[in-house]
Design a protein around this nucleic acid. Structure first.
Length: 343
DNA sequence: CATACGTGGCA
DNA sequence: TTGCCAAGTAT
């Protein structure tokens, strides 16, 4: 970075004069800051906003959230993704109630020990809620400092976090929380991954990559994600106007969420009847096919209508309107919508 | 250290 | 259409 003496001042001035409205910026309540930081992990502000507002309306403080059951709480996360976040947050909030008398610890080391709190969330909450001088290094900060210093450190390596934390601490002003937010805000709105708006950048004069003309080559990220593909046969089974759903395992992908039963694409119908312990009439052609993309996985799903024949255990058969009482991943919500639209 | 873990927006 | 990317953490 060129001439870092005025860097933090320029950045903070820009931040104060261009502050975007966000619900969690209206408070210094550590619980609300913490919730917003968890929601914002790998998730953009515009996606988070409506979820945050509904969540805070129902669970305005530690006590209301700690008192609620995880199945109800999870419903407020439906569609946000990375669902382990809410299980960990709920668990951590109960620990705050039980171990810290309902007060979010202001000691960074104690806070870091809570479930779902990593180095980023620790830094963000400790600096924003308590103004502790600790770094909060996320993807934005990687990018901003890669460019400021024309630094080719490979950000796909785990060691990158400590590398950039050191850079942040070298220029950290007293207004730690504002500074951490300003760095992220700069990355999100000006120093963007594609087509950065350098001419509007408040710290352009400090940016070595801008001077060098290679801003689009920073940051360096070498590792590529390799995606797997899986093909499934999905069944919407009806019985007396109700449909069959099942709970996913309590580990792995989409843990404990509900779904229509899914089988490897070439599973024989006899095997399906056996595994479900039902006699079925399955339609010969799917009523919908869909592709669902995860970060590391693609699901191709052929969805068939089916009818359960004879006497059946109706435990897991629900009315369509009852789906509001269960937590479904987006792939299943798409199937619900198509199924209902055709009725 | 490498990989699993969701979803939506964008070019 | 496809791949990349987003205020990361757990294992």
């Amino acid at each position: 970075m060129k001439d870092n003496s005025n860097f933090s001042k320029h950045l903070l001035d820009w931040f104060y004069n261009n502050k975007r409205e966000m619900p969690w910026r209206e408070t210094k309540d550590p619980y609300k800051i913490w919730l917003s930081e968890v929601m914002l992990q790998q998730t953009q502000v515009n996606t988070v906003r409506p979820y945050y507002l509904k969540f805070i309306e129902r669970f305005p403080n530690i006590e209301t959230l700690a008192h609620a059951e995880i199945d109800e709480v999870s419903k407020y996360w439906e569609g946000l993704g990375y669902y382990s976040r809410i299980r960990n947050f709920h668990s951590a909030v109960r620990e705050v109630r039980d171990t810290y008398n309902g007060i979010v610890p202001s000691d960074p080391e104690k806070f870091l020990k809570l479930k779902g709190v990593g180095p980023y969330t620790q830094g963000a909450v400790m600096s924003i809620a308590f103004n502790h001088k600790v770094p909060a290094v996320d993807g934005n900060v990687y990018r901003v400092f890669s460019r400021l210093d024309n630094d080719d450190f490979d950000i796909s390596k785990p060691a990158a976090r400590r590398h950039f934390e050191q850079k942040v601490m070298r220029v950290m002003p007293d207004a730690a929380g504002d500074f951490n937010e300003a760095l992220m805000e700069l990355g999100a709105t000006v120093c963007t991954p594609k087509a950065p708006l350098c001419i509007f950048c408040p710290v352009m004069s400090h940016c070595e990559s801008y001077m060098e003309g290679n801003v689009t080559e920073r940051p360096v990220k070498l590792k590529k994600i390799k995606k797997q593909t899986e093909h499934y046969k999905v069944l919407v089974i009806e019985k007396n106007g109700k449909i069959y759903i099942e709970r996913r395992p309590d580990n792995g992908l989409l843990q404990s969420m509900w779904q229509f039963p899914m089988f490897h694409i070439d599973t024989h119908p006899d095997t399906i009847e056996e595994e479900l312990n039902m006699a079925l009439h399955i339609e010969s052609t799917p009523f919908m096919s869909l592709k669902h993309q995860f970060t590391h996985l693609t699901w191709h799903m052929d969805v068939y209508k089916a009818v359960a024949i004879g006497s059946v255990d109706e435990t897991n058969f629900i009315e369509i309107r009852e789906k509001e009482g269960y937590n479904f991943p987006v792939s299943m919500t798409k199937i619900f919508k198509k199924y209902v639209d055709e009725k």
